[in-house]
Design a protein around this nucleic acid. Structure first.
Lengths: 140, 140
DNA sequence: CCTGCACCTTCCCACAATGGGAAGGTCAAC
DNA sequence: GTTGACCTTCCCATTGTGGGAAGGTGCAGG
């Protein structure tokens, strides 16, 4: 089947399928005589795997690792689990950070009238924080 | 003072200070006769405002708006509050999404032995999900 | 006076992952 | 044969940040 149909079946855009191939996440697709890429059910299954893994927030780097583990029938499941748990820990860390930011923002917004008046504790605090503000954190 | 000192005092890297200027977030800095940028306490205060606002996760676009509101003494505080609350809502949405993903991942990881054995429900599920998986969501 | 070092300048490159779009080839249906 | 829906590759933009090159400046010590 053509890339369009593979895209539709897998839920991965044609653009991304070509991109994944170009960066080596996927093997080079078979080509027809006219130069068109040619996909089978096997390839669509891989694309779906990629899409689902991406949907869970894994980076392409991690997807690549998971694809390798997937095709390695003898891999210890430990490795997969470790990857999943590292990802969970990462999500937890990011949520904690976002929560801290929210807390600060809520505190600020609470004291802001939010009406016609011009005095605004939010801006005042951004200009010179009264240590209720969260500390900077590594971004990712 | 030179850009290096302004950077140190504000916590914004020299690289970023130049970048912010280049994209119009900040006005062009004054220059010495030798071409070096020259900063005063005023400018450092602005840089600190930017850094703090960035630390709260606002985009440069939003920082720009907040800077404008900050310098407009007559703005209604409503506008600032609205921006802050929109940002809070955005954080909430993203946290909800990440939580859903975490739930899925925890469920998968739980059923994976994580030892020498090779069978792994995580990979199995990525290959063909048994509808405990989160649905795709708009990324941002 | 020269040298070295720390600073400054601009400019280009890279990242991660995705979309937009141009210029051109192909194929099927009408 | 033309039209329209595909496909191909290639380049550009995004967001925000850092790395690094090539070259100018300024000061301190010899």
């Amino acid at each position: 089947m053509n890339i369009g149909e593979a895209s539709e079946r897998s839920g991965v855009s044609a653009k991304m399928i070509r991109y994944y191939e170009s960066v080596g996440l996927l093997p080079s697709a078979a080509r027809r005589t006219n130069g068109y890429r040619d996909y089978g059910d096997q390839e669509v299954a891989v694309l779906q795997f990629v899409r689902r893994t991406r949907n869970l927030g894994f980076s392409l780097e991690e997807v690549s690792t998971l694809l390798a583990l997937w095709s390695d029938k003898k891999r210890p499941s430990r490795e997969v689990k470790r990857l999943a748990e590292a990802h969970i820990a990462d999500l937890e860390r990011r949520i904690r950070e976002m929560r801290a930011v929210m807390k600060t923002l809520r505190g600020l917004a609470q004291h802001c009238h939010g009406d016609e008046r011009s005095d605004c504790p939010i801006l005042d605090d951004l200009a010179a924080p009264r240590r209720t503000t969260v500390r900077p954190t590594k971004r990712r």
